[in-house]
Computed example of a mutant assay.
Amino acid sequence: MRLRTVVRGGLVALCGLAVVLAGPGARPASADPTLDDAKAQLDKIEQRQSELGEQWAELKLQLDQGKQKVATLNADIAEQQRKVDALRSQAQQVALSRFQNRGVDITIQLVTSPDPDAFLSDLSTMGRVDANLNSLLQDYQAQQANLSDLQRSANDQVTTLAAEERRFGALHDELEKKLLEGQRLVDQLTEQERQRLNADDDSVSRDDARDSLIDDASANARALAAVKYAVSKVKIGQYVWGSEGPTTFDCSGLMVASYRSVGISLPHSSRAQFSVGRPVARSELKPGDLLFFYNPIHHVGMYMGNGLFVHARNPRNDLEITRLDSYPAYQGARRVVG
């Protein structure tokens, strides 16, 4: 299941960015209590959206991993069942042979055997038939126990998946409610107030940003290619919950798609991505480094160089290039490659 809700024209972010209200000629917030109150309410809504969004991403990862585990367990169960069936067949054959030959004089068996040499060869092992049968039965019981354990594990995993899918659905519904709550609040504002609400002084002109992109010759070639992919999506990309391209993304999904374009796999969760690669000091950032924001982490972007980063910001702003110094709650960076 993938949530595809896009709210444009005024909804504050999943990824938790505080809305920048000041702009050229803007009035102080205290001079506009209506807008000031709206911003305060939107700040609370966006924080909850951020928390829900990361929970949603992490739970989706858990669901994907759980489904893979069930598939692996089912394959193991099928293989184990083949082992158990083979042992059962062997035990039955040994027991049947022992039963058919019991009470028959060995001399008569030798005389009547169509192949005396083969019979004598078999006779040399007859004393071990009971031991072989016991060994087979013990092995069968052990393998049957292993099969039962695998079946219980699979059943437990299926039960866990069902509970997680119910939680996944509940998160979906709560995210929808928060989107609508924020949209209703924005709809109550005047057109002038909405324009001020949508002002983003910390964003950079996309064309201007392209002119000064990536001047670090020491950056890794694959990392640079990942940056170029992300920047290429800025004009055409839209913010969509849980999406990772080719034209719709959420914040961690843009990182997934960008590095996937150069053959590197990332988990689709900002918190999970914070464990990828190695940590990098802010003073040592290079193009392609992943930048993380808020505590607990629930937003990620990609450093471009020149103090800029590209990210899928939120449903209102879609994809954007932003000055790192202006973006709040920076938590650290990770270098994926290089």
Rank of each mutant, 00 (worst) to 15 (best):
S275W: 01
L14F: 09
R271A: 08
V12T: 12
D43W: 00
A223S: 14
E176W: 01
N146G: 13
G66A: 11
E284K: 13
M304N: 05
Q141C: 02
V19D: 13
V280Y: 05
V234W: 06
S124I: 01
R206H: 12
P246W: 03
L35D: 05
E244D: 12
I77L: 09
D76M: 05
E181N: 01
C251W: 02
S30T: 10
L147I: 02
R88A: 15
S89W: 01
L87E: 13
R313I: 03
Q90F: 00
A163W: 00
V337A: 12
R2I: 12
A131S: 12
P116I: 04
L87T: 07
L3S: 12
V129P: 00
A257R: 03
L73S: 04
M255T: 14
D208W: 02
Q188N: 13
L59R: 10
Q157D: 10
V129M: 11
A281F: 01
L185D: 05
K39T: 09
T190G: 14
S205C: 09
Q80W: 02
G23R: 12
Y327L: 09
C251E: 03
T34A: 15
K44H: 04
D200T: 09
V337D: 10
E191L: 14
R196M: 12
S50W: 01
M302L: 13
N198Y: 00
I45W: 03
R82W: 01
R196Q: 15
Q141N: 12
A223E: 10
L171A: 08
A257P: 05
F168E: 14
R206Y: 09
S269A: 10
Q49G: 09
E181L: 11
N146W: 01
Q62T: 10
K67Y: 05
S153W: 00
G253A: 07
R271I: 06
